[in-house]
Amino acid sequence: MPNSMTRDHIGLWGLIGVQALCVFILIAEVGIELYGETGGKSADGQPIAPNSDHDHNFEFVVIVLLTGSLASTGLIVRRVLSRHKRTDELLQAATGAFFELVQQYFDDWDLTPSERDVALLSIKGLMISEIAQLRNTKLGTIKAQCASIYRKAGVSGRPQLLSLFLDELIAKGMSDCKKSCPQARSIGHNLP
C-alpha cells in the first residue's frame, strides 16, 4: 500500500495529466471551430465565420474539468508544502534540542573547552587521528582528552557516550509521542 507521500505524487501527476489533456482538447476544439477544416477560408478566399450555432457543452465540460483539476492540484501542493514546512520545523526543533542536551551534559560533566570540542567531534563520528589533525594537536593529547571525557561522563568509550544522548532523545521522543500518538501508547510502553 503506498504511503501518503506516494499517493500525493501519483495524484499530482495524474491531475497534471488531466489538465494537459484538457488544455490540448480545448485548444484543438477551439482551433477547429475558428478556422474550420479548410484553413479558415472559403473556396472564394473569404474568411469562414465561426459557427454561431455550435454547441458549447463540450467546451464547458472541458473547462469545468480543467478548473477542478487545477483546484485539486492547488490543494495537494498546499498540503505537501505544509507537510514539508512542518517536517523542517520538527527537524530544526530536534536539532536545537540535541544541541541543548549536549551542552547540558557537557556543563554537568564540567568539560573544558578543548574537551567539549573533542567530544563534539567524537560524537560526529570523527576518528581520533582525524580530530588530532583537525585540531592540529598530537594524537596522544586527543587520546588523553577522550579518556578524560569518558571518565567524566561515566562511560567506557565513544559508543556509550553517543548512547547517552540517543537514549535521552529517544525517551523524550517517546514521551512526546505518547501524548500525541495513540499508537505509541501501546508500542512503546516498555521503553525507559
Results as ranks from 00 to 15, higher is better:
residue 139 L to Y: 15
residue 68 G to F: 07
residue 130 E to W: 02
residue 185 R to A: 09
residue 93 A to W: 05
residue 181 C to T: 00
residue 55 D to P: 02
residue 62 V to Y: 13
residue 27 I to A: 13
residue 115 E to L: 08
residue 169 L to H: 02
residue 42 S to Y: 12
residue 42 S to K: 14
residue 31 G to D: 10
residue 82 S to P: 00
residue 42 S to A: 15
residue 98 F to K: 13
residue 158 R to N: 11
residue 135 R to L: 14
residue 73 T to Y: 10
residue 96 G to S: 03
residue 63 I to G: 07
residue 130 E to T: 08
residue 29 E to D: 15
residue 127 M to T: 08
residue 11 G to K: 03
residue 15 L to I: 03
residue 107 D to R: 05
residue 41 K to N: 10
residue 145 Q to W: 09
residue 175 S to L: 09
residue 40 G to Y: 08
residue 45 G to W: 07
residue 66 L to S: 02
residue 11 G to R: 10
residue 106 F to I: 02
residue 163 S to F: 04
residue 102 V to F: 07
residue 16 I to A: 12
residue 25 I to Q: 15
residue 22 C to N: 15
residue 155 V to Q: 08
residue 184 A to F: 04
residue 122 S to H: 04
residue 62 V to P: 03
residue 154 G to R: 07
residue 94 A to N: 01
residue 34 L to Y: 13
residue 62 V to H: 09
residue 12 L to T: 14
residue 71 A to K: 03
residue 99 F to I: 01
residue 63 I to F: 14
residue 40 G to R: 13
residue 112 T to P: 10
residue 143 K to M: 03
residue 104 Q to H: 07
residue 97 A to C: 00
residue 184 A to S: 14
residue 174 M to N: 05
residue 29 E to P: 02
residue 38 T to G: 15
residue 117 D to F: 04
residue 88 D to L: 14
residue 186 S to W: 03
residue 71 A to D: 00
residue 173 G to N: 09
residue 142 I to F: 10
residue 8 D to Y: 08
residue 100 E to V: 05
residue 71 A to E: 01
residue 86 R to F: 08
residue 150 Y to L: 02
residue 20 A to F: 07
residue 48 I to C: 01
residue 167 D to T: 11
residue 111 L to K: 05
residue 161 L to W: 02
residue 176 D to E: 11
residue 70 L to I: 11
residue 122 S to R: 13
residue 137 T to A: 15
residue 140 G to T: 11
residue 18 V to P: 01
residue 1 M to G: 15
residue 190 N to G: 08
residue 91 L to K: 09
residue 88 D to R: 12
residue 32 I to P: 03
residue 49 A to E: 12
residue 17 G to R: 05
residue 47 P to A: 08
residue 155 V to T: 03
residue 40 G to T: 03
residue 8 D to S: 04
residue 51 N to F: 01
residue 129 S to H: 12
residue 116 R to T: 05
residue 66 L to R: 01
residue 4 S to N: 03
residue 49 A to D: 12
residue 189 H to Q: 10
residue 59 E to H: 08
residue 41 K to S: 12
residue 187 I to D: 09
residue 175 S to E: 14
residue 104 Q to M: 04
residue 76 I to P: 11
residue 93 A to P: 00
residue 38 T to P: 06
residue 23 V to S: 12
residue 114 S to R: 15
residue 131 I to N: 06
residue 101 L to A: 04
residue 133 Q to E: 15
residue 60 F to C: 02
residue 32 I to E: 15
residue 112 T to M: 10
residue 93 A to I: 06
residue 191 L to S: 09
residue 51 N to T: 04
residue 53 D to F: 08
residue 135 R to N: 06
residue 162 L to A: 13
residue 93 A to C: 00
residue 74 G to V: 01
residue 129 S to W: 08
residue 170 I to T: 06
residue 12 L to F: 12
residue 177 C to G: 06
residue 171 A to K: 14
residue 28 A to E: 11
residue 2 P to N: 08
residue 63 I to T: 13
residue 28 A to M: 13
residue 177 C to Q: 06
residue 173 G to F: 06
